[in-house]
Write a protein that binds this DNA or RNA. Structure first.
Lengths: 347, 347
DNA sequence: GGTTATTTGAGGTACGCAACTCATTTTGAG
DNA sequence: CTCAAAATGAGTTGCGTACCTCAAATAACC
């Protein structure tokens, strides 16, 4: 086996010659076109593998002709997350157009399964790839599977639908996020003992349920001195979260820790500040926004668990592109890490 | 201005027509070739800007012909960091060869300025891009500048040489890393007061000096109850670090915190364990290795500040490629973040 | 004005691959 | 063996750009 020569790399022509077939046959094998004997397919694939041959991306892309279209299906309404993703995609516009990629945003009510499902159905045939912030619901699952069957590459973003046949999930491991939150609360509370409150949007949401699960896991096994109170369900609304939290703080003067699983941060923080106990209670929440940034700087929040939205946007695009091209995915690169953000490492 | 049509994007031919010049002239402008009047250059560039035209990467890459060669200049010896970088580059091999990129490792004594400088000089003309773990020294700076003048793209990795004309630095903000370490030590120590020890390789190393600076900054301003002891210089050697640390622990029974700035972790940990005070002393260090992972799991170390080596390797390659192609760099994507790793979020 | 230097145009070739056509060979069934 | 079906070969075209040559047009100079 000869040394791989940088300046005269193998081409499909070389593979054809070495496999003893014509260029046309190699092309048929490479693109799963019919009319090749199984034995020949094997021979060609072996030759490709033996030389660890990779088709030149540039050549393939150029010959392909048409541009690729990707759709990002995101929550409608005045959603900060959506705005962030959009702005990060905007920063990539040069990168995208240099590769003849078109990325379009599709706003829909991702919390209504049937609306989301029909939005997804409408994309069939139009796009080469779809990234979707998905609800885990049978009709959504079916819509995703239909897209996949139609030849589109599908990536779930932030919130997964593991039972579907989506090709990839770009987002954090929410159980690990909950565990991390638990460890932070426990360690920052220190030697004190007392009660720990949890506020979530709803335990019916997969993300939230998983985070709570992880949080409780760590609490039970590592911080027996801390007593976790029943979960408050604030529906991610500020007002409701504030009411519930105020009531809880009033009833339990020995609360030393607080984990806010989802949104509604404004309300939770207000209740805490109004109680005058923001310095005694360790407060850990999610995501770095204008609000949580302020709370961290004020010392009201002690840490935020963050999933870099810029990374999520770029990873989704890269994964869709790699899938469409048939390239391998650098899974470690695309893995969304759980960032612990405290006052001193605010990005 | 017409809508950008996804399926028939502009080409150089369109730009030429619209600017009222020939393809050859556009080519001359695009590649800074001589023989074009300033006025014509302006006109062409304006047309390109007006249409926010981006040359098709695939076309350019294909027409280019020769492959690109990048060199990674890294510390020689049984160095874990180098092994990691190499293994991460190995994982990218498919990605690299599909783009006809050749990445080679060059091992050298990066701690000896003259050796490093001559290693760099030897690369001149051979490579399109160079990533180097560099010492900040006049002769190294000169060697980097020579490479740049020779047309190579140069990226400093992990350790910067800001006074050189390197095109980019891929690595963390070490002052911020020190600040983060300080915040962690301070908060994990909690309400206790006492002394804090610092072990570094050498205060002459830029990285270490910057980390110590950031650490002291936070200590002074936020944790007045903690008294920082003078820095021990362990030269990143286990044995020496252990001796110094043992002595210090013996002399100061009220040490509550310990920041290990560089390597020599094995020695520092041994001294701490031998003193039997590993549970009382908050120990924060750098990097997730086999060793620090074990120490974190054992509860000897409380947190590690980590700079994802996989991300560093990939970012260096991407930046070199973007520079070589003349593409914009997605600076946020390439920014190496400071990861806080505790037992419960070990990667 | 003529002469030279500079600028521009026109065109070609090549890069590696996708996608296609059409002719030819091989295979397998009867 | 024959004959149709299946498999394969040989070839073409075009994608968008880089890089090159040579001729033609224009500008600058005396």
């Amino acid at each position: 086996m000869k040394e791989p020569d940088v300046n005269s790399p193998l081409t499909l022509r070389d593979i054809a010659r070495q496999a003893g077939v014509s260029l046309a046959t190699v092309d048929r094998v490479l693109h799963n076109r019919p009319g090749v004997r199984p034995d020949t397919i094997r021979r060609v694939k072996e030759t490709i593998a033996r030389n660890s041959f990779q088709p030149h991306v540039a050549g393939a892309e150029l010959a392909r002709g048409r541009a690729r279209r990707f759709a990002f299906v995101m929550p409608s309404g005045p959603n900060l997350f959506m705005q962030q993703i959009q702005s990060y995609l905007g920063e990539m516009s040069g990168w995208l157009s240099a590769r003849r990629l078109a990325v379009e945003m599709v706003a829909t009510d991702v919390f209504d399964a049937s609306v989301l499902a029909s939005s997804l159905e409408a994309l069939a045939g139009e796009y080469d790839g779809v990234a979707v912030v998905a609800l885990d619901h049978p009709s959504v699952r079916a819509a995703i599977n239909d897209l996949v069957d139609g030849g589109a590459k599908v990536v779930t973003l932030v919130s997964d639908v593991p039972s579907s046949r989506r090709h990839y999930y770009v987002g954090i491991d929410n159980i690990a996020a909950g565990r991390t939150a638990g460890a932070l609360v426990g360690r920052l509370v220190g030697p004190r003992s007392g009660k720990v409150a949890i506020v979530a949007g709803s335990q019916g949401l997969r993300d939230h349920a998983e985070r709570i699960f992880g949080f409780n896991q760590v609490m039970a096994s590592e911080f027996p001195a801390l007593n976790v109170l029943p979960v408050l369900e604030g529906r991610d609304e500020d007002e409701r979260s504030e009411q519930l939290m105020s009531r809880l703080l009033g009833r339990h003067p020995d609360i030393v820790g607080l984990y806010n699983v989802g949104a509604g941060t404004q309300g939770v923080a207000k209740a805490l500040i109004d109680s005058g106990r923001e310095k005694q209670v360790v407060f850990v929440g999610h995501d770095v926004t204008v609000l949580t940034r302020k709370l961290l700087l004020q010392g009201v929040m002690d840490a935020a668990i963050s999933q870099n939205p810029g990374h999520e946007a770029r990873a989704a695009v890269r994964v869709l592109l790699a899938l469409a091209r048939g390239e391998p995915i650098l899974s470690e690169q695309e893995k969304i890490r759980i960032d612990i953000v405290m006052r001193d490492n605010l990005p």
